[in-house]
Design a protein around this nucleic acid. Sequence first.
DNA 1: GAAATATATTGAGAGAGTCTCAACTTAGCA
DNA 2: TGCTAAGTTGAGACTCTCTCAATATATTTC
Lengths: 198, 198
Amino acid sequence: MSTTGPAPQRRMRADARRNYERLLAAAATVFAEHGVDASLEDIARRAGVANGTLYGHFPTRQALLEALLRDRMDALTATARDLLDHPSAHEALVIWARAAMAHTTTYRGLVTALMRSIKDESSELHAACRAVLVGGEQLLTRAQAAGTVREDATAADLYAMINAVAWAGEQTTPAQGERLLTFSIDGLHPSRSREHSS
Amino acid sequence: MSTTGPAPQRRMRADARRNYERLLAAAATVFAEHGVDASLEDIARRAGVANGTLYGHFPTRQALLEALLRDRMDALTATARDLLDHPSAHEALVIWARAAMAHTTTYRGLVTALMRSIKDESSELHAACRAVLVGGEQLLTRAQAAGTVREDATAADLYAMINAVAWAGEQTTPAQGERLLTFSIDGLHPSRSREHSS
DNA sequence: GAAATATATTGAGAGAGTCTCAACTTAGCA
DNA sequence: TGCTAAGTTGAGACTCTCTCAATATATTTC
């Protein structure tokens, strides 16, 4: 449930704790404004600390992102669990897919980081991404059991699909992303796939 | 048909022409190896010219890409035209979508540049991207007339969809991209969309 | 409460990249 | 052969990432 490395592992020194929080707050602002590829120097500047301090707390950009997103990603995973009780297996999947897409578009560029992290085990974001994927997998499996989703779709497909449409929405407009999500979900139906007419 | 600014507009000086070609060749190599976000300094170095020369010929990275891809993109547009004669409207669309995806994955990072360029009219790649989009639109319209594609899908949807799955393939594996393309195309069917069962 | 110590912070600096531009070269023409 | 327009050069001004020796400060201990 909890990711491997929580934020304040041991007791931190008071000034360290303060700077840690300031950096997180500054990161939220700067990422919101310039996307997750924003300058880390800028974040340190806004937090009022030297850039070395930022690197001391967050060795990599992904570590910073992980700290910033941990709660939200845990919540998304929890939502998946809760939705297992939803009366409609298919509707639960759709609701969750939309929530996942919304999360993924929190910051510009985030979707790319999340997609990379699922493959890269050394990423600080990896564990959280896997938890999300597993959450989605349960909803997917349930929908398949209910017969509303094709049997050959995997959790990896679902994860990739959600991220792909989120990426498209980020590159164009949120509305475009929504449209593609709708199409994609329809594409998961175990329907008359593979039939062609003239 | 031809994009607004062909490569050698007026007669170029012999040395300029030579350097232009060398830069293009170097770019092909470096982009293939490191993706389209590779260092332009590196490209200039490999071409054996000063970096100022590179900027002289190609004011932006997109300009360099445009010169490098022009032929291929024209070919893709031409393919769309040719496929209008294919006996199956739907199969023609699918074939073309696969070709478009293959083109889009020529270099790592290219898909992002292409997606950005369709929106950004100031991009040197914009015209070529629009031509591709229009090519796809004709195949889409024909498939809709044949009743194999939902009526509410637009050319922008198709373009975004192809790029989105290409992006997903780039981030994970080509096979994953293929799978998503299949699902997405199925999602375009005018079938039992929007129905839910338990 | 002051010294001792573990813990943090600092900011200069190395390295890489983008893009510009004034000075310099050179191809092509008369 | 020399003129001139066209092209090339590379240093320089930025920005960014990441490191680390020197410095500062919170906490613990006596």
